[in-house]
Each structure stands twice: as C-alpha cells, then as structure tokens.
C-alpha cells in the first residue's frame, strides 16, 4: 500500500496560492531585488563587451558586445531560476518549513513543487527582461521586433533550469551542497555553451559535449533572434529545453515526495 513516488504529477491551478505567496514576499523587496540580480550580468556584459570587444575586430561577424548580449540574457535567466529554486526554495522547504505548513492544508506536494517551478520561471523571466531592456536601450539588437521573440524563449529557459534545479533541492542535505551543482553543472555550461565565444572555437570533443547541454540550445535560439535571423532547427532547441525542464520537474517531484512524505 506504500505510496508510489513516481506516479505522474497532478497538475492543477491550485498551485496559484503557492506562487502568490512567493510573489508577495518578493514584492516587498522588488526594486533592490531586480537591481541586485541585474548588476552582475550587466557589468559582465558591459565590461567584457566593450573592454574585451575593443581588442577584437568582430566575433561571428558582429561587434563582440552584440555577440555577448544573447549569451548574457541566457545565462542571467539560468542563474536567476537556479538561485531561486536552490537557495530560496531550500530555505522554504527545509529551513523555514513553509512547505510543511502548506501540506497541512488542502494543497498537495505536487501543487507546492509546481508553484515553486512556476514562481522561479516567473522570477527568471523578470531577470531576462531586465537585461533585455538594457540591450534595447543600448540598441545591441539587430531588429527590435525579432528580439521580442526572445521573451518566450526566456520563459522556456527559466522553466528548464527551474526544473533541473528542483532536483538538487530535493536531494540536498544543506546549502553547501549547491556548490557542487554550480561547480559541476552551471559554471561548465557558462564556459562551454557559447556565452562568451562561439562553440565552434572549441575542440570537437568539447563541441560534442556542449551539444547535449541545455544552455547551448538556449543560446542557439536567442543569439540568432538578437542578431536578426530566424533560428535554424528552432523546434529541436525548444524541445530540448522542454525535455530538460520536464524531466527535472518529474524527477524532483518523485525525490521530494520520498523526502517529505515517507
């Protein structure tokens, strides 16, 4: 009779109060939060873009800062989603026991984890848009109308990395554990997936590895849109992001059920 932890998630709109709870907390400190999240990627983009960019004629046929802009949107969205589910999510689940309190109400763990997923995606969308606003202000995009398509892609990126991060949250004994995820997953992706330089500059073996990493697919969608082209193989990249996010969510839910409901 013991519960099967791997039954499919029950998705319903009951996740909204969970989302709303996180939104209300965020709203209290919204402006400093946005500025804080923006500062780091913006400084990288401007510092490297103009500083390093001035030493280079062009990268992939465009000024370096325009090249870097797409990468910055992607990695800043990824970071925002990841930090939210890892540190803030863990604090709500494990430290403050907010999830336990919610589980005593008619909401289920499926609702809670879905609420966290949607919330982290929302928050990372705000981060992505904040960077886009800077990019638009600096006119780094080739076509404004085409660059608007980056917004739905940012939603996908947020979903993808929120789902993946929730797995770490489910298995982590403490905050320290998240360092492994950053060292072994996030940082390598930032360096290998084409944020700072084209993937084609790397040896074949690294290119092959990069082809499997979700950030590569995010960048393969955002960079063309930024530089004024329609992405090639767009559906493949979209499916990869969805697959990583959905698999992450499903595995995370199974592991969290085992962690909290056994």
């Amino acid at each position: 009779m013991s519960r099967n932890y791997l039954t499919l998630p029950t998705l319903s709109l009951r996740f909204i109060p969970v989302w709303r709870r996180n939104y209300l907390v965020w709203k209290k400190l919204a402006i400093p939060a946005i500025l804080g999240n923006l500062a780091d990627p913006m400084l990288y983009m401007l510092g490297l873009g103009y500083g390093l960019g001035s030493l280079m004629p062009s990268v992939a046929g465009v000024p370096y800062i325009a090249f870097l802009a797409a990468g910055t949107v992607c990695y800043s969205t990824m970071n925002s989603a990841t930090f939210e589910v890892l540190y803030s999510g863990f604090s709500r689940m494990h430290v403050q026991k907010t999830w336990d309190a919610i589980l005593n109400t008619p909401l289920t763990l499926d609702d809670v984890v879905l609420g966290e997923l949607v919330w982290a995606s929302t928050k990372s969308l705000l981060s992505g848009i904040a960077i886009l606003v800077i990019i638009w202000a600096l006119q780094l995009q080739a076509s404004f109308w085409l660059s608007l398509w980056i917004i739905p892609v940012v939603v996908l990126i947020g979903f993808c990395f929120s789902g993946m991060g929730l797995v770490m949250n489910a298995v982590s004994p403490s905050y320290d554990f998240f360092l492994y995820y950053f060292t072994l997953v996030i940082t390598p992706m930032v360096l290998l997936c084409g944020v700072f330089f084209p993937v084609s500059q790397m040896p074949a073996i690294l290119q092959n590895i990069a082809a499997f990493l979700p950030l590569t697919h995010a960048i393969n969608l955002v960079r063309p849109l930024m530089l004024g082209h329609i992405p090639t193989q767009a559906w493949l990249h979209v499916m990869v992001l969805i697959a990583y996010g959905a698999a992450g969510f499903y595995i995370a839910l199974g592991l969290t059920r085992k962690r909290l409901l056994s």
Binding site: P17, V18, L24, T98, A101, I102, T105, P106
Partner: peptide, 21 residues
C-alpha cells in the same frame, strides 16, 4: 512552529487562508 517568517502576523492569516481557497 512553521509560521511564515517572511510575513507579519496578519499576513500569515492572509497567506494561509489562501491555501484553503
């Protein structure tokens, strides 16, 4: 106790009541 430390007393009621719809 698992009161929500991110909220005031009154907000705790508000947020918790929402979980019941």
């Amino acid at each position: 106790d698992n009161l929500d430390p991110d909220f005031s007393v009154i907000e705790n009621f508000m947020v918790y009541g929402r979980y019941f719809g």
